[in-house]
C-alpha cells in the first residue's frame, strides 16, 4: 500500500493536480512526410513520436491469411530518461512494451480487411516522465488515423494509482514519474472507450481486491477523457485549411 504522502492534506498530488486530473495533452498529426501516417503526442513531460508504414505486403515468414500483421517497435531515445540509457531498443523492457503495444493496437484495427499484409508501427519516446506506454498507445492511435487505417474504435491507454486521503481510498489518474517511483500500485489499461472494452490490462505492485474496481473505473474514466481529446485533435486536423461552412456541412 502506498504511503499517504502521495496526496497533500488539501487533497492535491505531488505535481499539484487533483486526483482525477490528467496531465496536459498536446498533440499534432502528420509531423513527417515520409511515413504513411505520423503523430506527435505529449502528456505532461512525456513526449512520443509515432510513425505508421503500410498496409503493405507482408514478409513471407510473417504473412497470415487471417488478417493483417501488426508489427510494432518501441524504442526510447538514449537521452529520454534522467539517467542516460545505453541502448535505445532491444532490451527486455522495450521488447515487452512492443508486444503490449501490438496487443492493444491489434484489438483496435479492423485486421480482417487486409489479409497477407503488414502494418508497421514505430514509436520513439523522446522524453520519459512516467506513463510512457500509455502515451505511446495514444500517439500510435493518432498515427494510425493519420495513415487512414480503418479502426473499430480509438485505442486509448491510461494509468491509475491509489492513495489515501482522510482515511478514504482515492484513486489517482495518469500517474507521473514521481508517483511511479514512490512505489505505489500502477494499473495500466488500454481500452476502446467507445465500446467499453479492455484491450490490455497490467498491474504492478500489490493492491487489495476490494479497491480494484475503484482504481479500474478511474483508469477507464481517464481513457474516456483521453478519447475526447484525441477525437477533438483529429477533427481539428482534418478541418485545417477548410472554411467554417465546409466543416458544418461535414
Amino acid at each position: 500500500m502506498p504511503g499517504p504522502d502521495l496526496l497533500s492534506s488539501q487533497g492535491l498530488r505531488l505535481d499539484g493536480r487533483r486526483p482525477n486530473e490528467l496531465r496536459r495533452i498536446r498533440c499534432k498529426m502528420g509531423v513527417f512526410t515520409q511515413p504513411d501516417g505520423s503523430a506527435y503526442l505529449e502528456q505532461g513531460n512525456t513526449k512520443v513520436l509515432a510513425a505508421v508504414y503500410g498496409p503493405h505486403q507482408a514478409a513471407k515468414s510473417k504473412s497470415s491469411t487471417e488478417g493483417v500483421v501488426v508489427n510494432c517497435q518501441y524504442s526510447m531515445a538514449t537521452f529520454s530518461t534522467g539517467e542516460r540509457k545505453n541502448r535505445p531498443r532491444g532490451d527486455r523492457k522495450s521488447q515487452e512494451m512492443s508486444l503490449h503495444l501490438r496487443q492493444a493496437l491489434t484489438a483496435a484495427i479492423k485486421t480482417e480487411l487486409y489479409p497477407r499484409s503488414q502494418i508497421d508501427v514505430y514509436v520513439e519516446v523522446l522524453q520519459a516522465d512516467g506513463g510512457a506506454y500509455c502515451v505511446c498507445v495514444n500517439a500510435a492511435t493518432l498515427a494510425l488515423i493519420d495513415a487512414g487505417i480503418p479502426l473499430r474504435a480509438y485505442a486509448c491507454a491510461c494509468s491509475a494509482s491509489m492513495a489515501w486521503h482522510g482515511g478514504q481510498p482515492e484513486p489517482l489518474v495518469d500517474v507521473g514519474h514521481v508517483e511511479e517511483a514512490a512505489g505505489g500500485v500502477v494499473l495500466t489499461v488500454a481500452s476502446l472507450p467507445s465500446t467499453e472494452n479492455i484491450a490490455l490490462l497490467e498491474m504492478s505492485h500489490r493492491l487489495h481486491m476490494d479497491y480494484f474496481d475503484v482504481v479500474l473505473s478511474r483508469a477507464m474514466q481517464g481513457c474516456r477523457d483521453i478519447e475526447v481529446i484525441l477525437d477533438k485533435a483529429v477533427r481539428e486536423h482534418l478541418a485545417e485549411g477548410w472554411t467554417k461552412e465546409d466543416v458544418v456541412t461535414i
Partner: peptide, 11 residues
C-alpha cells in the same frame, strides 16, 4: 541512433 520512424529498413 537511426530511428525506424525514418524508414522501415532501420527496424
Amino acid at each position: 541512433d537511426c530511428s525506424a520512424n525514418a524508414t522501415p529498413e532501420f527496424e
